[in-house]
Design a protein around this nucleic acid. Structure first.
Lengths: 163, 163
DNA sequence: TTTATCGTTTGAAATATTTCAAACGAAGAT
DNA sequence: ATCTTCGTTTGAAATATTTCAAACGATAAA
């Protein structure tokens, strides 16, 4: 690999690590995603391990979590029946977005549940916070709408991109 | 405070702590926000300290960060010139959302910058990742649009709510 | 069947983060 | 002017998280 390519790879790994951390995820997650994005071919656990200079333990665990989040998937490799090979999901950004949507839905849930509990408590003192919970629920419900609209819109945009 | 009110306060604090952590922020941040949301009156640092059972150090630091993020603000208290009193920003949810928008913008920036670097490297090997960066930039640019539309829409919805 | 290699699990070590207690400077109260 | 009390800062202690190395079970290769 040329020096310039090497440099770009390093920067990609670095920036994705920071970005993932900023979203409250493991930095190593970002590193693995970046590495797989960069690689034209799927990579085995050993290759990821070697390229990132980490040991097998954490790589194995984080790869599982990335799979659970639908950000990467196993790739079938005809030449090698032993190792598992991984690649990024084709719709990785959409999946990342959907994971975020789950957090939003959780906020909606919190607001709704607290709102109900306050209501059934019939306490006058809780009037202000009740008002806040109503506002919060409305906010995140509207947000869910926009998230869903975005997904529809992106599906169109993306299909244009790949035609 | 009645038992039921106490219980609701505790639950609010608990859930907000978890939610903040899920977004990659400090759990204590969520606790303070919940406490201030719950309280009809602004609270002093000492009161926050006492109610959350923590010492002054971390409370002071986190309160500063919350202020930087525009999630809380100082409230003027005519009876007490000594202490600082805090309350949640009236538009706290919108501000939290804007903080998130900054993360999105950062993702757009990453994609754009890497895209440019790959382009100027003129490397054929980097074609696939270049394609990915183009897709990524489009994705997050579209997302920015939706975020901005949402803000406009929420402004309307909120003004309806408070009329 | 035996051997070798894979991915996972696990307990310990290293690291990062959170929390506290004490010290400090600033500013209102006396 | 002196005394309190406030919020902040800071270094150490406690806690949480990340990371590693070794052991293990499973499965392909010999």
């Amino acid at each position: 690999m040329s020096t310039i390519e090497e440099k770009i790879k390093k920067e990609l790994i670095q920036r994705f690590g920071d970005a993932y951390k900023a979203f409250g995820l493991s930095k190593l997650m970002g590193h693995i995603i970046a590495l797989l994005l960069f690689s034209p071919e799927p990579l085995s656990l050993d290759e990821i391990t070697k390229q990132l200079g980490r040991s097998k333990g954490p790589i194995s665990q984080i790869v599982r979590r990335l799979r659970d989040k639908h950000l990467i998937r196993k790739a079938w490799m005809p030449n090698d029946n032993r190792k598992d090979y991984y690649e990024v999901e084709p719709e990785i950004f959409e999946h990342a977005f959907r994971n975020n949507l789950e957090l939003i839905k959780n906020n909606t849930r919190i607001a709704k549940q607290l709102k109900e509990k306050i209501k059934s408590s019939k306490s006058e003192n809780l009037k202000p916070i009740s008002q806040r919970m109503i506002e919060m629920e409305k906010f995140y419900l509207l947000m869910e709408d926009y998230y869903n609209d975005f997904l529809l819109s992106w599906a169109k945009e993306r299909s244009k991109l790949f035609s």
